[in-house]
Computed example of a mutant assay.
Amino acid sequence: MPANLQNREVSMATGITSSVGHGGSNRDPDVRKVQTLLNRVPPYRGGPTVPLKVDGLCYAKTLAAIEKFQHAGCGFKWPDKRIDPGGRTWIELQKYDHAEPQPGQENLIICFPSSGEESASFVPTGSFASVAPAPPVTGDTLVALARQQIGMASSWVATTVVRLTKVRSEIQRYKVYTKEEIQSFASIETHFKVRIAYTPDVEAKARIDKINGTFKLILQALGVIAKDRLVGDPSKTYKAAAVPGGFFYPKDSVIVGRDFANCNPNLKAAVLIHECAHWVDGSCSHVATELPDPVGKPLHDKWAAIANPGKKNYLQMDYNLAIQNAYSYAQCALHNGLGIDKRPP
Rank of each mutant, 00 (worst) to 15 (best):
C332M: 15
D259P: 01
H286W: 08
L219T: 07
V143A: 02
L57Q: 12
F192T: 07
P250S: 06
T138E: 04
P234Q: 01
I323L: 00
T199D: 10
N266R: 10
C58D: 04
P265T: 01
A226S: 15
L38M: 01
T141W: 07
V280T: 02
K216Q: 15
I340A: 09
V131Q: 13
G339M: 05
T289L: 10
P200L: 12
A72L: 15
T178S: 15
N266G: 12
T237N: 13
L108I: 03
R45H: 15
Y327R: 00
R229D: 09
A204D: 02
H278V: 05
R32N: 01
A240H: 02
L272P: 02
L321D: 05
S130K: 13
I208L: 14
P265A: 05
L219R: 04
D228R: 13
V123D: 02
R45C: 15
P79Q: 03
D84Y: 01
Y44I: 14
A132C: 05
P345L: 14
N266K: 12
C74S: 03
T289I: 12
G86R: 01
E9W: 15
P344F: 06
G282F: 00
V143E: 07
R32T: 08
Y314N: 09
G245P: 09
G223N: 00
H71G: 03
K236I: 04
A206D: 11
I182C: 13
P42G: 08
Y96K: 03
G87T: 05
M1A: 13
K239W: 03
N320V: 06
D341R: 04
Q94G: 07
V137K: 10
F128L: 14
A72T: 07
I211F: 03
V256C: 09
G104S: 14
S119F: 15
K297G: 09
F112N: 08
L267P: 00
I171L: 11
V271G: 03
I83V: 01
